[in-house]
C-alpha cells in the first residue's frame, strides 16, 4: 500500500518545441486504481515511464509515501510497469518469465517455482508454465505479463494500455481480472488508456490529459456530470453545448430560460447536458417543444436530432422508447436541472 504523489511532473524531450507532459500533479491514495486517460500522444505513457524511473522528468517530483524517488534507479523504486505489447521474453518459458523478477532479487529457485505456480493459478493459467510465449494467445500473454509484474509484489503497478491489443471479449475478461487482483492485493495502480469506457469502469479516479496538460482529475461519474470544460465534456461524448448566460439559478439561451442545479456557475458560458439525460415527454421542469430533424438507429440506442429555438439538441435512448417518433414530428422534451452543467465560454 503506497501513496503516490506526482508534483508538477514535466517532460520536455530534447529538441521539442512544447512539453510532452506539462506540470502533471496527482495524489493517488494507497491501494487506489487511477486511470490516466487521454488520446494517443498526449503524454500519458511518458508520465508512466517517469514514475517507473525509465525516463527522467525535466521538472517536478515523484513521491512514494512522501519520499522522493527521483534518485532511485528503476530497479530500486518498487514500481513495476506492464507494457502495452506484453514484451514477454521470447526465449524463456512462461514460468521463467513470471519468475524473472524474483530471480533478479536472488530468491531461492524452489521458492520461485512455488510462487510462480501460485501466481499462474491466480491469473487463471495453471499448468502453462512450461510453454513458450509464442505458444500462447494474446490474452494469455497479457495475463503472463500481469503475473510477472504482480509476483514481485510491487509498491506501485503501472499498466500501459494493457487491454488495447486484445479483442472485445478478452478485454472484458482481462478488465475483471485486473480489478479483482488489484483489489485482492491492494496495490496502488496507475493505468494508462485512451479508452474512456475502460477508464470509467476500472478506475477509482480518472486523470484526463489533453495536449500534455491535465484537464480534470476526479471520480469517473464527475466527467459526465460535472466536466471541467468543453474539451473534457466533448472527450467524454458530450454533444450539447448551448451558448447563453447564467445567473447561477437559471440559464438564458436560444430556447428561453431553463432552471440550473444549485452549484451552477454564473456568467456567460455554455450549457451542457448529455444526450442520454434528455427526457422524452413533458414531465418536470425545463420543458421544451422541439421538431424531430433526424432519427438514427444505433443498435442498442436510437439518436434524435431535435431543433428548438434555432438550435440543435441531441438526445439518445432505448430504441423502443422512440417507436412512435418520426422525423418531422413535434415532441416535448424536458431537461432535469440536476443533469445540466454550465461551462465557462
Amino acid at each position: 500500500m503506497t501513496h503516490v504523489s506526482l508534483q508538477d511532473l514535466t517532460k520536455v524531450y530534447p529538441g521539442a518545441a512544447s512539453p510532452a507532459l506539462d506540470r502533471l500533479s496527482l495524489e493517488i491514495a494507497s491501494g487506489d486504481l487511477v486511470a490516466i486517460l487521454g488520446p494517443s500522444g498526449c503524454g500519458k505513457t511518458t508520465a508512466m515511464k517517469m514514475v517507473a524511473g525509465l525516463l527522467s522528468p525535466s521538472a517536478g517530483n515523484i513521491l512514494f509515501d512522501g519520499r522522493s524517488v527521483l534518485k532511485d534507479k528503476p530497479n530500486e523504486r518498487g514500481s513495476v510497469m506492464v507494457f502495452q505489447n506484453h514484451l514477454l521474453f521470447p526465449y524463456m518459458t512462461v514460468a521463467a518469465n513470471v519468475g524473472f523478477g524474483l530471480k533478479m532479487r536472488g530468491v531461492d529457485p524452489v521458492q520461485i517455482a512455488q510462487r510462480v505456480d501460485r501466481m499462474l493459478e491466480q491469473v487463471r493459467l495453471p499448468g502453462l508454465g512450461g510453454r513458450k510465449p509464442s505458444e500462447l494467445s494474446g490474452g494469455q500473454q497479457q495475463r503472463v505479463a500481469l503475473a510477472r509484474a504482480l509476483i514481485v509484489q510491487p509498491k506501485v503497478l503501472l499498466l500501459d494500455e494493457p487491454l488495447s491489443n486484445l479483442d472485445a471479449h478478452l478485454r472484458l475478461e482481462m478488465r475483471d481480472l485486473i480489478r479483482t487482483l488489484q483489489q485482492e492485493m491492494s496495490i496502488t495502480t496507475i493505468f494508462v488508456t485512451h479508452d474512456q469506457e475502460e477508464a470509467v469502469i476500472l478506475a477509482d479516479k480518472v486523470a484526463l490529459i489533453l495536449d500534455g496538460e491535465m484537464r480534470q482529475y476526479d471520480k469517473a461519474d464527475m466527467f459526465y456530470r460535472r466536466p471541467a470544460d468543453g474539451a473534457v465534456a466533448r472527450f467524454f461524448g458530450g454533444r450539447n453545448f448551448i451558448p447563453g448566460t447564467s445567473d447561477g439559478a437559471s440559464f438564458e439561451g436560444p430556447f428561453g430560460s431553463v432552471k440550473l442545479p444549485p452549484d451552477a456557475m454564473a456568467g456567460r458560458g455554455e450549457l451542457t447536458f448529455r444526450p442520454e439525460n434528455v427526457v422524452l415527454g413533458g414531465c418536470g421542469p425545463n420543458q421544451l417543444a422541439c421538431l424531430v430533424a433526424q432519427k438514427t438507429f444505433l443498435g442498442t440506442q436510437t439518436r434524435l436530432i431535435l431543433n428548438t429555438g434555432g438550435t440543435s439538441i441531441e438526445m439518445t435512448g432505448n430504441p423502443a422508447q422512440f417507436d412512435g417518433v418520426r422525423v418531422g414530428d413535434h415532441i416535448t422534451i424536458s431537461l432535469p436541472p440536476d443533469t445540466l452543467w454550465m461551462l465557462t465560454a
Binding site: 515511464k49 517507473a52 524511473g53 525509465l54 534507479k73 528503476p74 530497479n75 514500481s79 513495476v80 510497469m81 507494457f83 505489447n85 514484451l87 521474453f89 521470447p90 526465449y91 524473472f100 523478477g101 530471480k103 533478479m104 532479487r105 510477472r148 509484474a149 514481485v152 503501472l158
Partner: peptide, 26 residues
C-alpha cells in the same frame, strides 16, 4: 523496451544485459 521491462522488474543494468539483451542478440 525489453530492457526497460527487466529494469522495472528489479534487474540491475548488468542483469538486464546478461539475462535479456544478450539472449535477444544471441
Amino acid at each position: 523496451d525489453y530492457e526497460s521491462v527487466a529494469r522495472s522488474l528489479g534487474a540491475s543494468k548488468w542483469q538486464s544485459f546478461r539475462h535479456v539483451l544478450l539472449p535477444l542478440i544471441a
